[in-house]
Computed example of a mutant assay.
Amino acid sequence: MFELTKSDFAIVSHLINETEYEVIFAHAVLDQNQPGRIFTDNIENPTVALFASKGGHYFLVGNPHNDDFNNSLYQFLMDENNHWVFFDLYTFSSEWSEKISTFLEDHVIKVKRSGFSFNPERFSTLPLWKEAIPVGFEMKVMDEILFDQYQNEMDNHFKMLWDSPVDYVKKGFGYCLLYEGRFASVCNCYYIGGGYAALDIMTAKEFQNKGLATLTSMAFIKKCLERDLIPSWECQAENLPSHKLASKLGFDKQDEFHIFWWHKNKKVLENYLKRNSELSDINLL
Rank of each mutant, 00 (worst) to 15 (best):
A132I: 12
Y168F: 05
F116V: 02
Y150R: 03
E153P: 04
E138H: 12
Q151G: 01
V111Y: 03
K159H: 03
S117Y: 14
E138C: 06
L128S: 15
I133K: 01
F158T: 01
D143M: 06
L128W: 12
K110G: 02
D143N: 08
V141G: 05
R113C: 10
V111F: 01
E131C: 09
E121G: 11
K170L: 06
K110P: 07
G136Q: 08
S114G: 12
E153C: 10
D167T: 14
F123S: 00
D155V: 09
E144S: 13
G115W: 02
K110S: 08
G115A: 07
K170S: 04
L128G: 10
P127I: 00
Q151K: 04
W162I: 04
D163W: 11
G115Y: 03
K130S: 10
E144M: 12
K112M: 14
S117A: 15
L161F: 12
G136C: 07
L161T: 09
N156Y: 12
F158W: 07
M142K: 07
D167P: 02
D148P: 05
F137E: 01
N156F: 13
K130Q: 11
S164A: 05
S114V: 14
K159A: 11
S114L: 13
P127H: 02
V166P: 08
Q151T: 14
N152P: 00
D143K: 04
S124E: 13
V169K: 00
P127S: 01
F118W: 13
S124I: 07
L161D: 03
D148F: 10
L161W: 02
E144K: 06
D143Y: 02
